[in-house]
């Protein structure tokens, strides 16, 4: 098969660590992989609003309430940035949303776990956003320009998320017996799901090699997971807490924390839609979308009338 000028140019850009931009020629597989990955990140942001919005109305102080609203609002903003990035690849936001609503595209399974106490707002900020940040920092160097730029923006905004989460947990750790129990219970519930967020082991991840080659992905799942564990375990200890892993130990030779076995059955089960709240999350999303249909139509109709009016007077 003949190599086209476009293909040569594309490979040159990838090899030189230059960004690929929307109007460049790119392989179909590259485009499809990106659309799927960016869309699913966007879906994750948007669905991720729900478990935290669950506690906005019950936040214990005015300051915590405002911080949480600002954070959930950021998730909406990040969804918007990511959908925008995906739209440069030739798919519309409506189409992506439809794929989400129909279950053809997914979102991170972490959001199928319920938020059962105020401590979960801290744990999500610290463990879940913390995991996301590790992943995102790597993605700032991704080869597709609009995606990389969205990541830079998101990283900048998100630096406050993990900190506000940890500060919620610090307050609990310095509080009463009841608060400390709430804190430990929360870590016990979120620790393993957070580790699963990095995805399957490299050996079981079908897409990783191609994504690494295209420089969409810059670091592998297992490398990122290890980085995360090393930074997180001491932070748990600082809170006076343990992580729910009897096999956890520090390996003096490697300088890394090593963990027990991840329950991949639970992971795949949740990914496939059998998580605690898969149905509720999508139902909530679809309902909000359907409930808003008359508003979107009205605004479109009004804009149309205004344009027609303008043309008449012109």
């Amino acid at each position: 098969m003949q190599t086209t000028a476009g293909e040569i140019r594309f490979q040159e850009l990838i090899d030189a660590d230059e960004k690929v931009e929307p109007r460049d020629w790119m392989p179909d597989g590259y485009r499809k992989t990106l659309i799927r990955q960016i869309a699913q990140h966007a879906h994750s942001e948007v669905i991720g609003m729900q478990p935290e919005a669950n506690w906005i109305t019950r936040a214990p102080t005015l300051q915590r309430k405002m911080t949480l609203i600002a954070k959930v609002q950021d998730e909406a903003g990040h969804g918007l940035y990511l959908y925008s990035a995906a739209e440069t690849l030739g798919i519309s936001r409506d189409e992506m949303q439809q794929l989400l609503h129909d279950g053809k595209q997914k979102y991170s399974s972490i959001f199928n776990y319920p938020t059962l106490s105020w401590a979960d707002m801290g744990t999500i900020g610290w463990l879940v956003d913390g995991a996301a940040i590790v992943n995102q920092i790597a993605l700032q160097r991704t080869s597709y320009g609009p995606y990389a730029r969205a990541m830079v923006k998101i990283c900048k905004e998100e630096s406050f998320h993990a900190r506000q989460g940890y500060s919620i947990l610090l307050a609990l750790s310095r509080g009463t017996e009841e608060q400390r129990a709430m804190l430990q219970d929360s870590i016990d519930r979120w620790w393993w799901p957070a580790l699963m967020m990095f995805g399957p082991h490299d050996s079981d991840s079908a897409n990783t090699p191609q994504s690494i080659e295209w420089k969409i992905k810059r670091v592998t799942n297992d490398e990122l997971r290890q980085l995360y564990i090393d930074q997180t375990v001491p932070q748990a200890h600082y809170l006076g807490c343990t992580v729910p892993d009897p096999d956890l130990r520090f390996d003096v030779d490697t300088g890394h924390w090593s963990i027990g076995l991840i329950d991949w059955d639970e992971f795949w089960d949740t990914v496939k839609g059998n998580g605690r709240l898969n149905r509720e999350r999508i139902t909530h999303k679809v309902k909000a979308w359907d409930d808003g249909a008359w508003v979107r139509e009205a605004a479109t109709a009004y804009a149309h009338k205004q344009r027609t009016e303008l043309e008449k007077t012109a």
């Binding site: 609003m49 609002q73 918007l80 309902k287 909000a288 508003v295």
Partner: peptide, 8 residues
Amino acid sequence: ISEAPELE
């Protein structure tokens, strides 16, 4: 929050 007709 999370129930509006559009993300914006």
